[in-house]
Design a protein around this nucleic acid. Structure first.
Lengths: 341, 341
DNA sequence: CATTATACCCAAAACGTTTTTGGTGTCAAG
DNA sequence: CTTGACACCAAAAACGTTTTGGGTATAATG
């Protein structure tokens, strides 16, 4: 059996009250006793029981995150970098991080949020990959449950979030391609329900309009944000009679899949066809050729979100509750060369 | 405030005992009462408090996993697929999954294991990427804390694990390369402390011996299991006077980095240089050219490990406590062609 | 000497469950 | 009528903390 506060108290012939208060640094216990307590507590290897503390304090000292996994491709570098950021921030604040997986709008997803808000194993939740009408945000707001999000929703709700101005990013990306001589620029997006798709697609269209290029819906494909999704969508685009000379992809994984489709058709990416992605994951540095991308600070964002969430849980007002960051355009060889139009 | 068991009892004019036992399906409460209880419990939205239950039952209904993260490259596809497997298995058993990150043998790592074993927010722990003398396995075994592992250690310890016979896999891989005409086959490994390195390196050497090829230590490089690590190690190998014609990499990420180094030197992977990896991640399908690899069932292994861990926690003996699986050699273009030796 | 201030410490309640132990009422058998 | 069995229910203890509301010395002050 683990050593409890009672054991420490008994050993020192003190009350458990005093031990508790000594360890918590209250000033109504003498310096000498406090030191004695701390010393023997450490000697005995005493660590407070999490469950007991939670029960008494009515908080869990834990935060939760549900990976938006989609069988059979869970392995999204965005998620894993995001989780690393959450995890590191959590441990540095002495919190636990609870992880679950559920595909968007599934029963499992509903179930996990219900459980987490009722049974309260977590004090707050981090949301990512928001949807336009995000039931999670609605539900959590309704139940007054603390949460923060990466990205925002199209709802009349006020919650703290960090968002990338990916719209501006994609405008910039289109500009870049136009400057390289591209006129037929395709776009491979994500399902329409995701906010990120709305933003990025709007940026793509705005970029076209700015350059006086007509929007052509046959040049728009859809991916499920995986490599395979990008591969499939690109196959269709590249088999068009009037093939695009450039493809902008909603994320790096999609772009990696698209590059493969291009290679299979004997196209040299960078020369015959430009491809660009979004996220700036480590993947993008090592593709052939290295991938032009819009980089977002995933790890740092995750950390900052945890800080915001903690403020939210503590009931403090947040200095800057709506953060908007600019993605950084990183031009690499996949779009580096002029195209003969 | 959340609704407690007391509220349900009061509403029904029953004791909390009866409510508790009714909900847990004991047979000393009449069918009629049980149904009434269940109905109003649901109507009131009652969910047992996790903390209270944990405290009373002396278990957490949660398992823990520490991601072997290494700043600044956390984004390991192995980990994220592994986590997805753990997460899905956990939710399907109504468990929570606690995640933390720590780099191997760091203070943070010691700290987290101490906390988890003492403060008991988890009932058991899943280990991965074992080390030859793994202090974690030693520590957990000493403290009689339930754990299972992916891979095993070189210690006199008996714990349940699932392991790949990567040694045999690498022998097979060398054979494959030899059959393609390769004679100078290099190897990029991981730090020596990892079991996986010992296994795979041994397989590489054994394969050479089987083919009567001399072992040449200059053909051995070391990576930190990341793309960048592979890139750097491959640079050295490819700048040798007597350059290898094939490079076997300890994992897919390393191989992806090595491919980049090859491209930068104008070498066509598959024709001028063969490269192979290990893991069979989705990455490997989409590289240029697609990567030959040894595939291991990461997701399924994670799920199975959770099952084993639950048996361990319940104190049951495990039918098959030491599982050894064969990785599957997937030959793709990166090693597909004969080399002119 | 009585009073107050100060410094330290403690008993007990509370958090929300589960489990142990025992109690009451009904009915059938002796 | 007594006894035992059975079905149902409840009181209370326990899990290990934190917090509330004192309490007791000792020293300083009037």
């Amino acid at each position: 059996m683990a050593v409890t506060i009672r054991d420490v108290a008994k050993r020192l012939r003190l009350s458990i009250t005093t031990v508790s208060r000594a360890l918590d640094g209250y000033d109504d216990v003498s310096k000498k006793t406090r030191e004695r307590v701390i010393r023997t507590a450490r000697a005995l290897g005493y660590v407070p029981s999490r469950a007991a503390r939670q029960l008494r304090r009515q908080r869990a000292d834990a935060i939760g995150y549900v990976i938006p996994g989609q069988a059979p491709y869970f392995t999204d570098p965005f998620s894993s970098e995001f989780i690393a950021g959450l995890g590191d921030a959590a441990t540095s604040h002495n919190l636990d991080l609870l992880i679950s997986t559920a595909s968007p709008d599934s029963d499992a997803e509903h179930h996990i949020y219900a459980r987490w808000t009722q049974s309260r194993p977590v004090d707050g939740i981090v949301l990512s990959r928001l949807r336009l009408k995000d039931w999670r945000a609605k539900y959590l707001a309704q139940n007054d449950f603390p949460f923060v999000a990466h990205g925002h929703a199209r709802l009349r709700l006020d919650f703290p979030y960090i968002e990338m101005d990916s719209r501006a990013g994609f405008v910039q990306l289109v500009q870049h391609l136009v400057a390289r001589g591209h006129r037929r620029i395709a776009y491979i997006g994500a399902p329409a329900k995701f906010t990120l798709q709305a933003e990025r697609f709007a940026g793509y269209q705005e970029g076209l309009a700015d350059a006086n290029l007509a929007f052509d819906h046959t040049l728009v494909g859809e991916s499920d944000l995986t490599r395979t999704g990008g591969y499939q969508a690109a196959q269709r685009l590249l088999d068009l009679n009037a093939r695009p000379t450039a493809i902008i992809c909603v994320n790096d994984l999609t772009a990696i899949g698209a590059m493969r489709a291009a290679r299979e058709r004997g196209l040299l990416v960078g020369r015959d066809l430009a491809i660009a992605g979004y996220d700036g994951t480590e993947d993008s540095e090592h593709t052939d050729p290295p991938l032009t991308t819009l980089k977002q600070p995933i790890y740092d964002t995750a950390q900052r979100l945890v800080e915001m969430l903690l403020q939210r849980i503590a009931g403090n007002s947040i200095a800057e509750p709506h953060v908007i960051l600019q993605p950084e355009l990183i031009v690499r060889e996949s779009t580096a060369f002029d195209i003969a139009s």
